[in-house]
């Protein structure tokens, strides 16, 4: 008899013991009649007894997929993040009074944005974080939480440690560099800007940058996916730049928003489809 058949036909031990007792009791007069009586056909005691044996490899793959995809809110984190990045790009252009031209896109750079733009941009990463938490809660309430397995592969661990160290060293350096630039270099003349310059004074601006950059330092290790990390960083950088009064270079920084946004939406849609397929299989 093959192991596979034996595994699938394996029934609850209690039932086997009772059957054995019944078989022995046929010739044993001391056994009570209720046990000696012919055994009824074994009714399915539980779903596990009646259901076909699950494919263990499939179970394992389903668990891994669910853990990974539910962690990304079934693709919604990517979709929302991408939409928010496109919104950042739209807000930036709106801040210029929709005066974006090919010339400014390729040659010039954006002028300082008004404070209201900074506040609108500040809402987006906060909304993204809140939305992710709500979606995760919804998925966990409905299907249960599964934490992805931490790979014990030494190489991967080393890589992660190096990346985390770089991120943690780079962020304070960027923060300090930004503050140094703020104190040393005067902002461009507001007259050159089509809109009013930021109304925050230097001290408040430094506090705002420090607060946002510290928040980013805390949140960065929590974002595990590459796209997720990129979306989070860009969403935080946009209000920092505006509040600091930095010019957004249309040729480099600005183009990153719609490009990463579209990539994020594409990845989110792919993850969403995979997640639906996983849930269909689970149902």
């Amino acid at each position: 008899m093959s192991i596979r058949i034996l595994c699938r036909n394996h029934v609850d031990e209690d039932w086997s013991v009772l059957q054995t007792l019944r078989m022995n009791s046929i010739t044993d007069p001391s056994v009570p009649d209720e046990i000696r009586s012919p055994a009824p056909a074994p009714a399915p005691a539980s779903a596990s007894a009646s259901a076909p044996a699950p494919d263990l490899e499939r179970l394992s793959a389903l668990t891994r997929d669910y853990a990974r995809l539910s962690h990304d809110q079934g693709g919604w984190a990517g979709i929302c993040g991408g939409i928010f990045l496109l919104a950042v790009a739209a807000v930036e252009v709106w801040g210029q009074g929709w005066g974006l031209s090919w010339r400014t896109l390729w040659i010039g750079s954006f002028s300082p944005q008004p404070l209201r733009t900074g506040l609108v941009l500040l809402l987006l990463p906060l909304l993204w974080i809140a939305l992710r938490a709500l979606l995760l809660r919804h998925i966990q309430d409905r299907y249960g939480a599964v934490a992805p397995r931490i790979e014990s592969d030494d190489r991967r661990e080393r890589e992660l440690r190096v990346k985390n160290t770089i991120a943690r060293v780079m962020l304070p350096l960027i923060m300090l560099g930004g503050i140094w630039m703020l104190t040393r270099h005067p902002l461009p003349a507001p007259a050159s800007a089509p809109v009013a310059a930021p109304a925050l004074d230097l001290g408040l601006r430094i506090v705002a940058i420090l607060a946002l950059a510290s928040g980013l330092c805390v949140l960065l290790p929590r974002w595990e996916g590459r796209t997720e990390r990129m979306v989070g960083i860009l969403l935080f950088i946009a209000p920092v730049c505006v509040l600091a009064g930095f010019q957004m270079g249309a040729d480099d920084t600005m183009l990153a928003f719609p490009i990463i946004g579209l990539i994020s939406i594409g990845k989110g849609v792919r993850d969403y489809r995979q997640f639906r397929a996983t849930l269909r299989e689970l149902a």
């Binding site: 394992s60 668990t63 939480a145 599964v146």
Partner: peptide, 19 residues
């Protein structure tokens, strides 16, 4: 098997996946 594929698994998911 399910547990070996994840760090932690909630009862609700385990119930669903193992039927």
């Amino acid at each position: 098997t399910v547990l070996s594929s994840a760090e932690t698994v909630e009862f609700k998911f385990m119930e669903r996946v193992t039927r």
